[in-house]
Design a protein around this nucleic acid. Structure first.
Length: 482
RNA sequence: GGCGCGGUGGCGGAAUGGCUACGCAGCGGAUUGCAAAUCCGUCUAUACCGGUUCGAUUCCGGUCCGCGCCUCCA
């Protein structure tokens, strides 16, 4: 079976046919680096990481690019607020981003182009668009002229009249048409800027992706991905720019968009106080990057997914089960079962793939081949990759629950009570693997002496810190994080 | 106002014109110093109203509910 992809452009599943079967190209919109990435930002990262794993399995060569937007008004604001240099901010958060995503077993892409490295290309494309009559200069701004092209709105399925009727933002004075968007804008002296034929300024947001793709891949790539919210206007505008700059050549043949993420059933937003960053989660759930990854993959990527503390616990249980089954198993060179791969080839059907993993897990109780297949397939999925889960080093950390919602819906005897606020809970994890091992030894000694009271004390003491002891048939004791 | 998505068991989450995956949780039993794991058995669902059909959860129409986007946004 070959890969099938739901294409936002055609609103249907299509057989994937790369331009060059020996070299697949994929570009995913990356972060604007001025803050910690939240779980919602992590969803496309994990989803497309999995897609790239699949592409690498099925095709000879894959080049995966994910950009970093390091020039943007939000970054400028963050710099002004904090007094820190822009370059410090962007470097810092880009580093944190790649570290946080790596903790979710989402490795770095092949290419990580930064917007500020493409200023020349952006100026060149802007000039070309002006020359071709698709852009104009007005009050120091350069704008793309949407009425200069046909089929604008192809990707998002919008008609211009509809958009104008519902526009909730005042049309800027320098726009000839309400739908026109910025290619280049002027910078004041205290704002970062680059010299251009239109004066000192900086690029508009949409331009960088078009230029990076052109520079690294050429006119057309195979797959372009990102979150649902990027369909309009970001991707629509990328398409418009690139098509006009490239004599109508499509920017990408397949457009893939992941759905939204909610937190504890509610939309994540700063005002609700349920804005949860990957960084905080990794503090609250140390060593559980895989568990978070699994949560993000339980739902199909185009469906909404709810991220909750309970969901993490379920994922942990699932993973612990698989870890136990594959403890000490070597999956080197094992073929990944086709049923698993085929699930993924069907537009990345992760729920189906997970059910295949569970079928393998069932078999693995009695079958060593299934054990190795389970490990290989799970590794492919990006889990079960942490070396020695049983030996996890739990750092001493005090983390605050960041998921506190201002309005927590609590059901009491069928009545829905709206609580105004839930107090944050703070807690401490105060065990490292060394002290755990020591306690296990002490317990083994106690068991030998039939001092079961002390043995049970140690068990419950550790359990309070989410460490669960498993006594083996051979008298050894392993532990896992709950 | 325009465009779009979704409502499946206690929870997560699939699939299908006829027997409704998979996981978690629950229950009964075997096993166990305790606990877990494992094994056997077992309970629970397709928002509502019509239509098409021998038969719909699946197709069609409507209702209700929830959600998203409409130039900040993964």
């Amino acid at each position: 079976m070959s890969l099938r992809i739901y294409n936002t452009l055609t609103k249907g599943k299509e057989d994937f046919q790369p331009i060059n079967p020996d070299h697949v190209t994929i570009y995913v919109c990356g972060p604007t680096v001025y803050n910690y990435a939240h779980v919602g930002n992590a969803r496309p990262v994990v989803v497309f990481d999995l897609l790239v794993r699949l592409l690498r399995h099925d095709y000879k060569k894959v080049t995966y690019a994910r950009n970093i937007t390091d020039i943007d008004d939000k970054i400028i604001e963050a710099a002004q607020d904090s007094g820190e240099a822009i370059s410090n901010i962007t470097r810092k958060y880009a580093d944190i981003y790649s570290a946080d995503m790596a903790a979710l077993n989402a490795g770095p892409p092949d290419l990580t182009p930064k917007a500020t490295d493409y200023i020349d290309q952006m100026i060149t494309m802007t000039a070309a668009l002006i020359e071709k009559g698709h852009a104009y200069e007005q009050d120091g701004h350069v704008l793309f002229s949407v009425p200069s092209i046909e089929n604008y709105g192809e990707l998002s399925g919008r008609k211009q009249e509809d958009m104008i009727a519902g526009a909730r933002v005042d049309v800027a004075s320098y726009k000839k048409d309400a739908a026109d968007f910025i290619l280049w804008k002027p910078s004041t002296n205290d704002q970062p800027g680059w010299d251009s034929p239109w004066g000192r300024g900086r690029p508009g947001w949409h331009l960088e992706c078009s230029c990076m793709i052109e520079d690294n891949f050429g006119k057309t790539i195979d797959i372009h991905g990102g979150g649902l919210d990027l369909i309009f206007p970001h991707h629509e505008n990328e398409i418009a720019q690139s098509r006009c700059a490239h004599e109508g050549a499509p920017l990408a043949n397949y457009w893939m968009h992941n759905g939204y993420l909610t937190v504890e059933g509610e939309k994540m937003s700063k005002s609700l106080g349920n804005f949860v960053t990957v960084h905080d989660l990794l503090e609250e759930f140390p060593g559980k990057g895989e568990d978070i990854r699994l949560c993000l993959l339980t739902a199909h990527y185009r469906q909404p997914v709810d991220f909750s503390r309970d969901g993490i616990h379920q994922a942990t249980k699932q993973l612990n089960h698989w870890y136990r089954l594959t403890d000490g198993v070597d999956s080197e060179g094992v073929e990944i079962p086709e049923s698993f791969l085929n699930a993924l080839r069907n537009d990345l059907d992760t729920p189906k793939a997970l059910s295949v993993l569970n079928v393998l897990a069932k078999k693995a109780e009695k079958d060593n081949t299934a054990k190795r297949q389970l490990k290989a397939a799970a590794n492919f999925f990006g889990v079960l990759e942490q070396r020695g889960r049983f030996d996890l080093n739990i750092k001493t950390t005090t983390a605050r629950l960041k998921l506190k919602a201002h309005k927590a819906r609590v059901t009491t005897l069928g009545t829905v009570v709206e609580k105004d606020s839930v107090n944050p809970i703070s807690y401490t994890k105060s065990y490292d693997s060394e002290s755990v091992e020591k306690l296990i030894e002490e317990r083994a000694e106690a068991k030998k002496n039939k001092d079961f009271k002390r043995a049970d004390e140690i068990r419950s003491q550790l359990l309070e810190n989410d460490i669960f002891l498993l006594d083996g048939a051979d008298g050894t004791t392993k532990w896992e994080q709950r």
